[in-house]
Amino acid sequence: MSSSVSQQLSSAPENPKKKQGSHGSFHRFYDINGWTFVGGAVALVALFMIYPILNSLWLSLHSGRGIVTEFVGFGNITRLFNDPVFIKALSNTFIFLIIQVPAMILLSLALSSCLNTPNLRFRGLFRLAIFLPCVTSLVAYSILFKSMFSYEGIINASLLWTGIISDPIPWLTDPFWAKVTIILAITWRWTGYNMIFYLSAMQNIDKSIYEAARLEGVGAIKQFFYITVPLLKPVILFTTVMSTIGTLQLFDEVMNITQGGPADSTMTLSMYIYNLSFKFVPNFGYAATVSYVIVFFAAILALLQFKMAKDK
């Protein structure tokens, strides 16, 4: 066959092939650029997050003091259940979670729906004031709370002055009140932060729904529970998961307000991990096991959020 004929014959099927060729080279160019742009971040995340989390899992199977370690398999997990400080830290973390997160979410919801009422005066000022706490650093505000809640501090002084209490409250030195102080502190810092999420979500709610409810004679409280809360469900879920993960990792506040005391009554999991690794004679293996308890709960939460987002 002469080449010209073959060329003529095959010209039709060759065309798309040629296109595919040029497409292929564009595709390669596209791909190379794609990996170049994402490469830096991907490499860094692999090095500083994925490798460490796997390494931590490996460490959790070891135990020992300092650099002398031995393989103990699941020995650390048995140790967890017999470790009173760990059990204390775990239960403290849960007490903080169960009381503080719902209280704060409700408070932020209430505040944001108040700020969302039509014809409110000084709206911007109120919003700014309530939001301002979340601009402070965790260390700075913890120290502020430590000084305000000291035995002869301003909180006790004002409570005594107004006659609400007759004896000063041992905010920082009593196991129960120390927990209360931590909860008050976290709530002060994060309520405004959550409020901003709700406010921006409320702007997307159709005002006529409230108008209709009002005409039907539905009161403000009922409107809140039957209209606002159900419509904000996705945002509430998001902020709840974020707050829960934050509380699971609670460290800066307890470190700077109570240092976990008195008698470990405000000890949290993160604080205990820190103590095990950097304060006592380091036992990295056991500390890694404790850290995987946090990973475990965070993973459950992530799964829960994923499932709920899918159901939506």
């Binding site: 994925i50 490798y51 460490p52 989390i53 931590s56 993160s270 890694a288």
Partner: peptide
């Protein structure tokens, strides 16, 4: 990558330190 957002820092700090 998005999944790694859920990893708490407490679980990374010991390996990062070493």
């Amino acid at each position: 990558l998005l999944l790694t957002m859920m990893i708490p820092f407490a679980a990374l700090m010991i390996p990062l330190f070493t």
